[in-house]
Design a protein around this nucleic acid. Sequence first.
RNA 1: GCUCGGGUCGCCUAGCAUGGAUAGGGCACCCGCCUCCUAAGCGGGUUAUCUGGGGUUCGAAUCCCCACCCGAGCGCCA
Length: 570
Amino acid sequence: MGHDPWSELRDVAEGVRRSIETALHVTTPGTLEEAPEGRGLFALATHPWAKALKASPGDIASRAARVRPAPPFEPLRAEGPYINFQVNPASFSELVLASVRLMGDRYGTSPARTERVLLEHTSVNPTGPLHVGRARNPLLGDSLGRLLRYAGHPVQREYYVNDIGKQMVLLYWAVTNLKPTPEDEAEERVERRYVRLYQRANALLEKDPALGKEIESLIDRFEGGDGQLTRAIRAVGDGVLHRIVAVLTRLGITFDSFFWESDLILDGSVHRVIERLLPLSKEEDGAHYLDLSGFGLEGDAAKYFFVTRRGTSLYTTRDLAYHLRKMERCDRAINVLGEDQKLSFQRLKATFQLMGIDWAPETIYYAFVSLPEGRMSTRKGIVVYVDDLIDEAIERAFAEVSRRRADLSEPRRRAIAETIGLGALRYNIVRVQAEKAITFRWEDALNFEGNSAPFLQYAHARACSILAKAGDLSPGEPRLLLHPQEQRLLRWIAKFPSTVRDAADSRRVHVVASFASDFASQFNQFYRDCPVLTAEPPALRDARASLVDAARIVLHNGLDCLGVTAPREM
RNA sequence: GCUCGGGUCGCCUAGCAUGGAUAGGGCACCCGCCUCCUAAGCGGGUUAUCUGGGGUUCGAAUCCCCACCCGAGCGCCA
């Protein structure tokens, strides 16, 4: 018995489907779909064959149902125009629980694959605190990384640190030249102190052309390979980066590597890219660009500048250099990007084609998170910072835990509150498909009921509570698990591994969130209908306990894919 | 204007790549359930002809075309 009972059963059913088609003498293959619950595991619609067979779908279904399916499937059933594939319930229980027993706590993972994935996510400029608008990136990226690992890929999670460019240089200038006010100094968090200086520098820049020149000359020195200046600027960025990473760590998000943009200048990568691109380029006022028309781009969108009039590189140039380097380090690169990056990436991919490179990074785009007041903007003060959000979430969760569980000690309640608060945040962002714009609302982000992480965590805690009381597990007799609610739960357990793998393959994290929510709902219904501890005979009690343990593993791992911790008690 | 996304109950959302059995969930609202493994739960009720219009098809939320609305982009910025 393997790791993925659903796919195994599906394979058997596909064989039956082919036998049906042979028996019916039809040439167009039908599509096996999942049957609605209560009508078996799989279903085959007969409509497509009606014309060729000159018969009604109902008649075809009854005729097809005479085909004898392979075990563990029971005799086929014709219901209207459908042929339904039902498994023997006792065999189904046995099969599913055998898979879970085989995999143990790793149930849901797929066998190792060889394709090495380099997953770049977050990559926010280290110029200020992380706000919720940007946070969708690490949340999505980290979950995707987890998912890919469940699906068997070796994954390297990388943060590309944009420590070059006007923004960064301006921040450096502000930090080294502006005198902090007492309010600035009162702010303990570096990134928040810096952002205040940065905002002031920005205002100065708008009024003072001389400052603009100064910034430009700093950029030129930087680009020219001034190592001392580079180190100084990087130190400023590093200070902010540490804080960003610290906030992400609170959310359970970590990285395997950091790639500094400035290294691409220092090691000559940028220079080499420019050399390589120059022969392919056109010139305009001393600046160079690639004409990308014919790659699905036209007009201004097709002009891809990579050298400025002043001879310096651009963000895009370095990005090209970066991805050229990435190519050498993995089989597949996946980037999680804001939708505002679409055009630049389309150009990057086109450029690769122009260069004759038969490789391109894969991109996952997400829409922005805005506030009811509008798009998030640090400058306009329309912003919610992630660390504030985390604090608020944990505080609210603590109030809830304290209200419900006065019996627990305070440290215990604090620990649970952290799990719940953090979980609620992550889940809330990741449950929605990435392309959909989100309006951030506190009441949604801190929702602890319904379709929320605490709902799933609660189901997990319930399972753990039963298991704690059940004591040592013996497998019992799985063939006794014939209650409709047990069978439904088994079905959801069976689907878990293939759901995770499909979600990873299609890079759709929210699929796992939906699954986990439906799963928890199934578990709660089972919990209502099937008492475990008092079940008789003991073989049933033990089998139910094993079922609960299997559900516990699915809940735990489903949550784990989303980066949410599953508490044993709450 | 052009390009790319999105438009599903009052609000949020799944389903759309592989078109099929009454379009699932959640929130909110109303009713009910703790001598029984944690009520952050469960059951029931009210709520959508899936933005609009054409088309393809035995069959369309799903595919195609047109229109409308919202978001993003169209820098020698990052």
